[in-house]
Nucleic acid binder design. Structure first.
Length: 215
DNA sequence: CACCAGGCAAGTA
DNA sequence: TACTTGCATGGT
């Protein structure tokens, strides 16, 4: 079986099992970007607490986040963990958004994909996965988001080695699938759900929709 | 109690 | 270039 068929097989199985997940869980594109930074190496449940706190403080807009002092912001996003670090990263991103795109994600979206990706990667605190999450889920650009779950599942099923880097994992998907925003969005969503539900501890993998694929 | 979570940057050799 | 370490809360 070729790579394309293999990937589509995985997609069909997971998509049938989970159904349409309508990801990313956020009300607007700016909130997507904020969540992408807050969720770095952090459980989503903790991120939700921080997002709620931001909402209650009316800080879920570029202008509001731009104005709030960094130390005050840190205290508000405390439940998400690494809160001093993430306050600095949020401020860096919002400064970038304001300076480059008048604080408007809709203007940022117009930028050419590869140029925008490079510029996002230039912002302190935005690495490959965060950049790609913003590009796909906030900007509707056809990029595949790799993450720890993606890698773990591919490693478990013998499709890649444990030392495979981010770019190679992303290329595995993007070289063999049509660049379709809906496909990439749903694919990443079902992968994360699979990781959460089945792929954390080895014994639980028996009931995983992908269990039959294991060699 | 230990371990982990939808990473990233900075420091070291 | 290749490895190591700091960042931190909350759930299991």
């Amino acid at each position: 079986m070729g790579r394309q068929e293999e990937l589509l097989e995985i997609y069909e199985r997971l998509n049938s099992f989970f159904g349409d997940l309508h990801w990313w869980p956020a009300d607007d594109p700016f909130e997507v970007a904020v969540g992408a930074i807050l969720t770095q190496n952090t459980a989503w449940a903790n991120v939700e607490k921080a997002i709620q706190a931001l909402r209650q403080n009316r800080l879920l807009t570029p202008a509001a986040l731009f104005s709030v002092p960094e130390d005050e912001l840190a205290g508000i996003i405390r439940p998400s963990g690494y809160y001093h670090l993430k306050a600095r990263r949020l401020k860096a991103f919002v400064r970038f958004l304001v300076v480059e795109y008048s604080g408007d994600v809709d203007i940022m979206k117009v930028e050419d994909l590869s140029r925008l990706r490079d510029k996002l990667l230039g912002v302190n605190g935005i690495g490959p996965e965060t950049a790609d999450s913003i590009l796909l889920y906030a900007c509707q650009k056809p990029v595949f988001v790799g993450d720890t779950y993606t890698k773990r599942i591919l490693v478990r099923h013998g499709m890649i080695g444990n030392d495979t880097d981010y770019h190679s994992i992303q290329a595995l998907f993007m070289d063999h699938l049509q660049p379709d925003v809906s496909l990439f969005s749903q694919f990443h969503a079902v992968i994360v759900n699979t990781g959460k539900a089945f792929c954390r501890k080895e014994p639980r993998c028996s009931s995983c929709p992908l269990a039959i694929l294991r060699a």
